[in-house]
Write a protein that binds this DNA or RNA. Structure first.
Lengths: 196, 196
DNA sequence: TCCACCCGTTCGGCTTGACGAACGGGCACC
DNA sequence: GGTGCCCGTTCGTCAAGCCGAACGGGTGGA
């Protein structure tokens, strides 16, 4: 996952780390939702003692328990087993892990590798210079990925936008105010949003 | 998940459904990886009896057990708790559900709306005419989305590729042979792959 | 002050997941 | 045919998750 648990490296994440991760994730989500431990336990249909122990890190819950918590919290399962996420990231054209094909004149740059369990919307953008397009924050946990195709643009968090040339890539939290402003005519871009 | 566990609907997925889902997912992934039950249990460090019972649907494993299996199988956690998935789709520049901004000269076309719980990799492609780049099938359930930025290209399933002009979009199964062939110099594209 | 309420933690019990060992079946090899 | 190996399943034991109940602490109202 994306968080990946990804590769088959057995040492990838110590089990003990897993449960503390879950413990903190549950508490974080619960407090973020403004729920008391008692109330969450009630909604999830589990004993509050169970939840208390989980949050204290004496864990290893069953999937059903964890699932019930995810449902009650209204968050994806993955949110509870995946670590917090990074911030703004820029990959300029020519930068990044590029792989070349020996078959053809073809190169591919991996810009963002699969955070798991995300909902993903894919947009094509056409814009021209003018007032910037401001976006109010989306749902918590949202990330936006922008690849500029043609033209020039300013994109990213409102307080620290990034200037992009064709081929440039930027990712930033979508759950904070952000903007997209074309700086040249015929500016096109691809935007991928993932709401966890 | 979109499966979602998403909303706080307690009845969202019967617990029994969850475990049969996990059961079939484990078996599917294991057989897909060409592993015997015994071998997988050994790699995951769990008793094969445990695994046997899990695959038979008498389950509710602990997260540590499930995590160990995910690691041993080299698949994201989510793969084990999410259900299986559509076909080729083309959206030409100017087609599709386009929304215009009143703030700025800006339009966004929704190309692909969030199938949930997918792993998503985002690539930028630079290619020139020559031999097409052929791809062997990826993992089952994979979908590729291509948006052409500049140039011209032929992309899609090997047996029915689609010619793309700048701004065009195509999505197709990534678990069948497919290709990407630049038809003009300086062809650039954005490719998003989602492996469930 | 007293009481009622809700918070989160702790404590026995009951249930159940995880384990190792034993079992039957299929296959290759001698 | 006999033997050895690995497959996947089943069984009995043990540990641990989950539960309800009881507990102490904090807060607001009568």
């Amino acid at each position: 996952m994306g968080t990946g648990n990804g590769p088959a490296d057995p040492a990838e994440r110590p089990a003990s780390g897993l449960i503390t991760l879950i413990a903190t994730a549950i508490r974080r989500e619960r407090e973020g939702a403004g729920l008391s431990l008692t109330e969450l336990a009630r909604r999830a249909g589990i004993a509050k003692s169970t939840l208390s122990q989980l949050e204290s890190g004496s864990g290893n819950p069953s999937v059903e328990t964890l699932w019930a918590l995810g449902v009650a919290l209204g968050v994806p399962f993955s949110r509870l087993v995946d670590p917090p996420r990074p911030r703004i990231r820029v990959v300029r054209r020519g930068e990044g892990p590029v792989t070349h094909s020996d078959q053809a004149d073809y190169s591919a740059a991996l810009l963002a590798a699969g955070a798991t369990h995300t909902r993903r919307d894919l947009y094509r953008i056409d814009a021209s210079p003018g007032r910037p397009r401001l976006s109010e924050p989306h749902l918590p946990g949202t990330t936006e990925h922008v690849v500029l195709c043609t033209g020039r643009a300013l994109a990213g968090p409102t307080e620290e936008p990034v200037e992009l040339d064709p081929g440039d890539y930027v990712a930033y939290p979508g759950d904070a105010p952000h903007l997209f402003e074309a700086l040249a005519p015929d500016t096109t871009a691809v935007i991928v949003t993932d709401h966890i």
